[in-house]
Design a protein around this nucleic acid. Structure first.
Lengths: 151, 151
DNA sequence: TGACAATAGTTGTTTACACGACTATTATGT
DNA sequence: ACATAATAGTCGTGTAAACAACTATTGTCA
């Protein structure tokens, strides 16, 4: 009887799955703390960064969803809350009246800008114990993981 | 003026952060689908695996929390729902009457066992496009990431 | 040994998530 | 041109998440 792995030892794929999720959760939790301290949820912060990246033209709701880290199944009310706080504006298009485009407000931009440096510093500190070569390697492997498409 | 990175290009740490979270989300979503099809949430599934690993002695609630992939801030009601469905039992200890130990039931074990093989196959398929050497490398780097402790 | 701190869980309450059904508008195919 | 499908977003509803305040029990040390 030949075994590739010790009986009882989890297969490498399982270990990676768990480690990846735990690492993501640990890193995200730290950032969340900071984001929450600024009165945002991570989903809201994510949307604002996407809208800033999109520029003054704004983006349709579903495109925002596609670009988010973890897709929100209820974009409408996520944007509702952000609009109420004047972080974004929404406007139904005239060319295609099905589409509603969202844009970030000046107030939203200001809040984002305030958070930029601390977030960058936090990310740097999270990986400060790793060499640059190891980080490049990790980035490379994560891209390879992402190449897997479900279905 | 010397720049380490192109202006406008996100620092490597930021890219890794986003890639790690996106990868984790994509992988977890696939598994979640299967877990939900079996009537569980991923938190419930996670708790059940932890309790199976703990054996017949069970575990105190807070220890379960520590071992979870993403710590649930409301263990009591998570376990409430699982107890109601007879996936686990709970019993207050007599030595230390503050402690409530949870154990997995036979029904819970049966459900877990039914899911074992499909989950393992799913994980294998998620990483099937990567060589074993690359996977080892990834596991190694993820352990290194986890070495960072906040605060 | 008695006050105070620490630990383990529970509960109240507000808010957000998640699933699906629904409306409106535009594209398609015969 | 018209029925049908596809797309974009909204809304109703039950459930769960999140945060804090609370009870009960045990540990600490002055």
């Amino acid at each position: 009887m030949t075994l590739r792995t010790k009986p009882g030892a989890a297969p490498l794929e399982d270990q990676i799955f768990v480690s990846l999720l735990k690492a993501a959760d640990a890193l995200a939790s730290e950032v969340d703390q900071f984001i929450k301290a600024n009165g945002l949820t991570s989903a809201q912060y994510n949307v604002m960064r996407i809208l800033r990246g999109a520029g003054p033209d704004g983006l349709p709701c579903n495109t925002i969803g596609e670009r988010m880290i973890s897709r929100d199944p209820d974009m409408t009310r996520l944007l509702d809350r952000m609009e109420k706080r004047e972080l974004i504006t929404r406007e139904r298009q005239t060319e295609d009246r099905r589409v509603v485009k969202a844009r970030i407000t000046d107030e939203g931009l200001k809040l984002l800008k305030k958070m930029d440096a601390p977030i960058r510093e936090l990310h740097k500190s999270q990986f400060a114990h790793m060499t640059s070569a190891r980080l490049k390697s990790l980035m490379d492997l994560l891209s390879e993981v992402a190449a897997h498409k479900p279905e």
